[in-house]
Simulated scan of single mutants.
Amino acid sequence: MKKLNLFSFTLACVLGLVSCSENITPGAEDQLAIVNTNNTTSKVAAAPWVKQFEETFDVGSNLSQWTKEQRADYNSWYCDYYSSVPTTQWRDGKQCLEIKTTKLSTYKYQSGFITSNYQYKPENNTEYMLSANIKLIAMDGGTYKSFTDTYGAWPAFWSVQGNAWPTQGEIDILEGYSFAPNASRFTSNIFYGTSVGNNLLGNSAERNYPANFNINGNNGWHLYESFWKMKNNVVTVTIKVDNVTVATYTNSSAANLNFNNFGKHSIILNMNVGSKDSNFIDPNKINLFTTTMMWVDDVTVYKRPI
């Protein structure tokens, strides 16, 4: 989720018009994912992986492992976050986090944003695996609609050190942009800078999901993952969706990127609406039907020595 000032955001969007995808053969760690017979995707890791964090979003939970934000979005004139929006619900037979949008007026939408109190960063010769199972869906009255039928939704699953952003980095695992009737877009991205508020990467680290990614596949549920490791002081970040590698990042992936300066990251889930750049998301075209929602049925973090 690009936390930029207006100038930087506009520049980033211009630079982001050109991006490339990396579709690399999955590694051995992919064997840790189990697709259940009831068509849901869950992440289970055996030794030497050790679980560090888990959130199952049990219905009735007060989300005590998270901070629910109440503020305007940094990237949009049209979206305000309310702490009352993130709730736990039964959805598709699962206990889920639900973040839903509500139209308040012609140019104002209510949505939700949660940040984990847990933070993590790999020590030398360790690797962390962050996973979340997410479904994006809309409703038109009592009728379900595909996320791809909407315009102007901007859901995200990411990790970041918010203090002195972006000097301690940001890793975007999922950023979805709905542009109906044109094709929706799904990407990963990295942000970093050496001074507060100044992202030096633009969108040069943005990578599109594979062309065959189908947001409606597997009943809309997908496994999104970030593998963040340091081996002999060399840092690598790998982003995967449904066990397919979307991008592998090192310091050479973008000019000015320095993963070694990244700090401990929190985990973030949010649903933005619109943008501060009307050439990117036209506020007059926003259509989220009655609501557009992000459902998350679990988030886990595992760690292993390498």
Score class of each variant (00 low, 15 high):
residue 117 N to L: 10
residue 287 N to W: 04
residue 174 L to R: 00
residue 233 N to V: 09
residue 222 H to R: 02
residue 231 K to W: 06
residue 234 V to W: 03
residue 65 Q to W: 01
residue 233 N to S: 13
residue 24 I to V: 15
residue 2 K to Y: 05
residue 129 M to E: 04
residue 111 S to K: 00
residue 134 I to M: 14
residue 138 A to H: 00
residue 89 Q to P: 03
residue 220 G to A: 08
residue 51 K to W: 02
residue 113 F to I: 05
residue 264 K to N: 14
residue 144 Y to C: 07
residue 222 H to E: 06
residue 2 K to I: 09
residue 9 F to K: 00
residue 58 D to L: 14
residue 98 E to T: 08
residue 95 Q to F: 02
residue 280 F to E: 15
residue 198 N to L: 02
residue 120 Y to E: 04
residue 53 F to I: 10
residue 227 F to E: 01
residue 172 D to Y: 00
residue 66 W to C: 03
residue 205 A to Q: 00
residue 294 M to W: 02
residue 189 N to E: 02
residue 9 F to E: 14
residue 103 K to H: 14
residue 177 Y to I: 06
residue 117 N to R: 10
residue 92 D to G: 05
residue 103 K to F: 06
residue 46 A to I: 12
residue 171 I to Q: 03
residue 184 S to R: 00
residue 221 W to C: 03
residue 65 Q to P: 04
residue 58 D to A: 06
residue 62 N to F: 10
residue 61 S to C: 10
residue 256 N to E: 09
residue 212 N to W: 13
residue 76 S to T: 08
residue 222 H to A: 06
residue 207 R to D: 00
residue 249 Y to R: 02
residue 188 S to L: 03
residue 15 L to N: 13
residue 67 T to M: 09
residue 25 T to W: 10
residue 258 N to A: 15
residue 96 C to M: 04
residue 40 T to A: 11
residue 115 T to Q: 10
residue 18 V to D: 11
